[in-house]
């Protein structure tokens, strides 16, 4: 074997060593969480959290139990449902509107579009904290959404308190449009002008070009935007606390705050199971849109 070969092998070995170390580094907290979530609350203290439970959850039987997960699910069920009701429409709407706005600002030519685009960019930099009070005022005093929504409560599966989720959907959609517009615009700038012109010569209107040409070519970008917005909105606590405040319409992040906390102390296994459970949907979204996401970010 020549020295060059040996060098190459050593390099490869080093590469794998680094990769394994990195995988361990990133997976350890998750492993810790997983093991904690199946540990008996009584035996939680006094053992290394990243090792399998020393004392099996159900004492004396030697078998594990997923009971904290069951409890976590029971505790979070309502929050999870509310979160899904909120996140799915808000994600789709902000993505769709962002895409439309980006198309109008990038591929359609009209006067003053730079000024409008500047407003969109400015919108990205408005901090959440700055709008909390006006937002509460808006949804509770300016727009009587609660009474406007009341008639819809007669529909099956719709509850009167859902008006708060509608308010959240609108808020998150509005807040998400600027960043979505920015992301889509970067993508649309790379679309061939000649292709859009060819479609115009082929007789397609501005809206037809969007529907039949631009939208189908945006799918990878939608994956990027959906993952981003889904995670963002799912994990939001601030707007939910401001608009939902408390009660039946609480979303999962709000429910998570209180779970496993009692006067007797903190039930860490339950909290850990709940935290993992609450993070699961974002993980699923990554897996579902992952390959399109890769296409989108490398496009």
């Amino acid at each position: 074997m020549s020295t060059a070969d040996t060098d190459a092998r050593l390099k490869r070995l080093g590469l794998y060593a680094v990769l394994v170390a990195m995988a361990g580094f990133y997976l350890l907290p998750i492993l810790t969480g997983l093991f904690t979530s199946i540990t008996s609350p009584e035996s939680y203290t006094g053992q290394s959290p990243f090792l399998p439970p020393l004392e099996p959850l159900i004492a004396e039987t030697g078998s594990l139990s997923l009971q904290p997960w069951g409890n976590a699910f029971d505790g979070l069920a309502r929050g999870l449902a509310n979160s899904f009701i909120l996140v799915i429409p808000a994600t789709i709407l902000s993505g769709l509107f962002g895409s439309m706005a980006a198309y109008g600002l990038t591929n359609v030519d009209w006067r003053g579009q730079v000024g409008i685009y500047a407003l969109f960019v400015a919108g990205i930099f408005i901090p959440y904290q700055a709008v909390l009070v006006p937002l509460t005022q808006f949804w509770y005093n300016v727009v009587p959404l609660q009474s406007l929504f009341a008639p819809f409560a007669a529909f099956p599966l719709v509850q009167a308190y859902h008006w708060k989720l509608v308010a959240l959907i609108v808020t998150h959609t509005a807040y998400g449009i600027p960043i979505c517009t920015l992301l889509f615009r970067a993508h649309y700038k790379k679309l061939s002008d000649e292709m859009i012109e060819a479609a115009r010569l082929d007789g397609a209107s501005v809206s037809t070009i969007y529907r039949r040409i631009v939208l189908p070519l945006s799918i990878p970008m939608f994956a990027v935007v959906f993952i981003y917005q889904f995670t963002q909105i799912w994990n939001d606590l601030l707007f939910a606390l401001t608009i939902v405040q408390f009660g039946d319409a609480s979303v999962v992040t709000q429910e998570l705050v209180g779970i496993g906390v009692s006067q007797a102390g903190t039930n860490f296994p339950l909290r850990m199971a709940a935290a993992l459970l609450a993070a699961l949907p974002t993980l699923v979204v990554y897996v579902l849109f992952g390959d399109k996401f890769a296409e989108g970010v490398t496009a």
Binding site: S192, M195, A198, R200, L201, I213
Partner: peptide, 17 residues
């Protein structure tokens, strides 16, 4: 452009991918 009854061939072909 749509009403002109004209068809155009572009340098980049501009096919819809």
């Amino acid at each position: 452009p749509a009403d002109r009854d004209i068809a155009m061939v572009f340098q980049s072909y501009a096919l819809y991918p």
